[in-house]
Amino acid sequence: MNIFRLAGDMTHLMSVIVLLLKIHTIKSCAGISLKTQELYALVFATRYLDIFTDFISLYNTIMKLIFLASSFSIVWYMRQHKIVRRSYDKDQDTFRHLFLILPCLLLALFINEKFTFKEVMWTFSLFLEAVAILPQLVLLQRTRNIDNLTGQYVFLLGAYRALYILNWIYRYFTEPHYVHWITWISGLVQTLLYADFFYYYFNSWKNNVKLQLPA
């Protein structure tokens, strides 16, 4: 485990905590895309199929459990919690899951490291994670007025992706046989999707003004 990987995992964890904090303490999920959260729940459910079959480390297992539990509980809050669900911007969050899920599934059937159920599901989860943020970005664009916690949530997710890229570069030069094209390309695509958001996030931070995306 290198410093980039650990920092990446920690920013990922922080993004989830920020989101849960917002939902749990303010009892609001305004500005958060349920579509994106459902896609993340699906991402973790399909990626961590190995959780009970391959033991890697205690850290690995605990983090997997945290991501699974948090993603499903966020979805539960947004759909079922009697106060939180009222703040959900249903009319603005109109992205169709299937437009993302189907192409990713098809792509995973053709491009994968090995044609087995677990491998195809793992590849599918990588492709889906790359694009799962899209409904959230569309929602941000539509609502424009972004509260601090939502802005921080998306920023932390983007930071996590950027740190993972540094982690891959580091591992490529320090570990033999560390070549994972599928992971790298989907990870790169995922990070690039944040570029536009980052640009406005840093500008608002630099000028000390509230984050607003252009129409």
């Binding site: 990987r5 190995d50 391959d54 890697i56 690995n60 983090m63 991501f67 046989h177």
Partner: peptide, 10 residues
């Protein structure tokens, strides 16, 4: 040589 290492990333 094992090219098929376990996936240790999250």
């Amino acid at each position: 040589e094992c090219f098929y290492e376990p996936k240790d990333e999250l």
